[in-house]
């Protein structure tokens, strides 16, 4: 088990290098350091010296990928790519183009993101599973049919509609909770209610339908027939046996997205003015701050890979038949 985890972590390194290479090429092939400097200095003060100085200050005064003037191994290490990548691997994100410390910003903004994403996930899971079980219990009846129809209709509505509609209805018409904003500690709760409810409602359609398929797949298994043949009641079959076994794909699916919760949700956060990582990313995109975007890409990839590894491990825990090799 331990050896497997170590191997998976080692396997993650080439992937992360690949991710870095892709983002790096994306940023530098089209947009050379000179262009970047010109953009940040504005049109007025652009002299070759000013560009040179900006590049030195931000560490862009080296060849991008291959340094022909250097000797031996440092041909590859004495480059922008190597220096920036190594720093990322040490989780030293450096400072953003506007001069703020990215690592500090991320550690501050992580928690508001989590404060929304975690309740949405947990409440959503409970609601979706309840509905899916209900629909599965009444399968092949009108409740099943109309349940699925409602799910498809809810899936077809844009997430933007849920947010705009919810904000308008609850915030503006009923004046129940503030429309947007955030507060430290417990004061944040009243700001979080609306986004969490909207997030849960927005996910019901797709979630319920997906869990319904999982339950129905499980209901057709042999052990269910055996259980029924032994005379167990339908309720006991569904809640005692089917539910427990269907939980395996559900839980492992949840484990895969757990690390990514830190990244936050782009639209929800920007709509509700919550200072999380999602709105941080959007701001960076709108301000064309590459240092932040690159850090977020790297962070997202790391979290994704952690999610993959955790999924595999959680399989062995909930399902003893699975052996890691």
């Amino acid at each position: 088990m331990m050896a497997y985890i170590v191997r998976r972590i080692l396997y993650a390194i080439p992937i992360l290098i690949g991710v870095n290479l892709i983002t790096f090429t994306l940023f530098f092939i089209v947009n050379s350091p000179d262009d970047m400097a010109r953009m940040h200095l504005g049109v007025k003060r652009v002299t070759p010296e000013a560009i040179e100085q900006w590049k030195v200050e931000h560490g862009y005064n080296k060849p991008t990928l291959y340094n022909a003037s250097a000797q031996g191994f440092s041909r590859f290490t004495d480059t922008i790519f190597f220096e920036k990548s190594v720093k990322l691997f040490q989780f030293d994100f450096g400072s953003s183009d506007s001069g703020r410390d990215i690592g500090y910003d991320i550690s501050q903004r992580m928690w508001p993101s989590l404060a929304i994403a975690l309740p949405v996930l947990l409440v959503g899971l409970a609601v979706n599973i309840t509905f899916a079980l209900l629909i599965a219990f009444f399968r092949a009846t009108y409740i099943d049919f109309w349940g699925v129809v409602i799910c498809v209709v809810m899936m077809s509505i844009s997430a933007l509609f849920y947010i705009i509609g919810g904000q308008y209805l609850v915030g503006k018409l009923l004046h129940l909770v503030p429309i947007s904003g955030y507060d430290t500690s417990l004061g944040a709760v009243k700001f979080l209610i609306l986004p969490v409810i909207i997030g849960v409602i927005g996910g019901i359609g797709a979630g319920t339908r997906w869990y319904r398929t999982l339950f129905l797949e499980e209901i057709n298994r042999d052990y269910v027939r055996t259980a029924r043949a032994k005379g167990l009641s339908e309720q006991w079959v569904l809640f005692g046996h089917v539910f427990k076994n269907a939980l395996i794909p559900i839980l492992t699916g949840v484990v895969a997205v757990l690390p990514l919760l830190f990244m936050g949700s782009l639209i929800t956060e920007s709509f509700f003015g919550i200072p999380g990582l999602g709105s941080y990313t959007i701001d960076a995109i709108n301000n064309q701050d590459f240092a932040i975007v690159r850090s977020m890409v790297f962070l997202g990839s790391v979290l994704y890979i952690i999610g993959l590894i955790m999924t595999d491990i959680s399989y062995t825990i909930v399902d003893p038949r699975v052996r890691l090799s």
Binding site: I15, V19, I22, T23, L26, F27, L260, M263, L266, T281, I285, V293, M296, V297, G300, S301, Y304, I305
Partner: peptide, 11 residues
């Protein structure tokens, strides 16, 4: 796949 889709698009 491990690059967050939205960020790749944005970049």
């Amino acid at each position: 796949n491990s690059i967050p889709g939205v960020l790749l698009i944005a970049a």
